[in-house]
Write a protein that binds this DNA or RNA. Structure first.
Lengths: 230, 230
DNA sequence: TAATCTAAATGAACGGCATTCATTTAGTGA
DNA sequence: TCACTAAATGAATGCCGTTCATTTAGATTA
């Protein structure tokens, strides 16, 4: 029992100040730890202090690898983008591939709502998985004969719908309950009551399926694309 | 020049503790002050301390009228919902009315992005202007012969697209710039470069117009509605 | 009219948060 | 060998939302 000798328990061993012989942190470890924290506690649990603690490090150490918390969110976002399923492009017909991609995209980020402003507002520079996803989607559109000058607009339109739909997944069931104000909005209140529930799927899924089918049909009808593998 | 006598400057007069003879705060005053702060400084400037200061009140006083900062955001949200243009419903054909409504809706909230989670996730109970907006929209759909059991789903789908598009308005111009990773995503990079710019409108507007037209066309094609004033 | 209850303000305090800075230690390149 | 840089600690900062005890004024009731 000399100085801090106690065998085992390396997790709690306190590191002395100064650069350690072997680097403790890396972007990959930070990303992984952040994801684990989010899975356990949600985004309210993702603080720089908690992240540091889970990595057995002082909070300020994180700033040697990351400029800000936003940077951490960007790391997580890019990692998750790798989970979006783009494998249907070039295999299934375009409309079907878009549906599979969109469902997967929405499902991934419905569980990570606070990342949506990050995806929607931050440049893709230094987000390799994100760029890889866009490359696969673009190739899928090109293979279906889509005119290249309208691909980005079509993808942005679909993404906008996907982001909004991700929020909708997290809306409470009573979001349209007008409560005491219902008498002042009779048609609306009636429509909410009569909302059908085909196949027992949730409201969010019904709206998502309806809107996605509509947008895909509309894009097909509007576009001047040259049919190909579609 | 007796105790705090200096004439004028009622703005800086310090109130003594205790209930004032005439109420200083109200929901309406709080809402107005919050909106003014946001206009001046954006949502980063909307803090409880700043809000209190602009109302010449201690921060804790706000909590007599509001349960939390979320409540303040809800007040602002509902106020803004009154600015969404629903006047075209019942006047213009359905497709045209939806376009006018959607553009207005997106434009209002593109300037208030932090409110989108509030709208998308909080019940409409106690948000009278929001309920009024939904009533007008519902009536517009009914008048166009829309089956009442699919109205809410259609509105939710449109709203999802609108929320996502509001984010897109605020995206930087270079959001799709892959930077040094461009060589690894040649098709995507090319599509970004070739993105057309019809009529000199911004990228966000092009994508919004395209997606909105597509969804409206798709909804019309999909639905089993009974044509009417449409 | 007096006593009680409630509404609405002040001001001090709290804990949590992201971030910064001085310092220490270890590897790296000239 | 010496300077430079990378990567850690730990103390400190400032902001933020929120709570609480307290004070004062209006409203209700006996």
């Amino acid at each position: 029992m000399t100085l801090g000798s106690a065998a085992g328990a390396p997790t709690h061993a306190r590191r002395r100040a100064g650069r350690p012989p072997q680097a403790v942190l890396s972007s990959a470890r930070i990303t992984k730890a952040a994801l684990k924290l989010v899975s356990a506690d949600g985004y309210k649990g993702l603080t720089m202090a908690a992240l540091a603690k889970s990595l057995n490090v002082a909070p300020s150490a994180l700033y040697n690898h990351v400029r800000s918390k936003q940077d951490v969110l960007l790391l997580v976002e890019d990692h998750l983008m790798g989970r979006v399923d783009v494998t249907a492009f070039g295999v299934e017909p375009w409309a079907e591939a878009v549906k599979i991609w969109a469902h997967s995209y929405r499902n991934v980020f419905a569980a990570h709502l606070p990342l949506i402003p990050v995806i929607a507002l931050l440049p893709v520079t230094n987000a390799p998985a994100t760029i890889t996803m866009y490359e696969a989607v673009t190739k899928g559109f090109l293979a279906a004969g889509w005119p290249s000058d309208s691909i980005i607009d079509a993808v942005v339109a679909l993404e906008s719908f996907i982001y909004g739909s991700a929020y909708d997944v997290n809306a409470p069931a009573d979001i349209f309950d007008a409560g005491s104000l219902a008498p002042q909005a009779p048609h609306f209140a009636a429509a909410v009551t009569q909302r059908s529930n085909p196949g027992g799927q949730s409201d969010a899924n019904a709206a998502f399926t309806l809107g996605l089918s509509a947008m895909i049909a509309g894009l097909l009808a509007t576009s001047t694309r040259v049919s190909d593998t579609e």
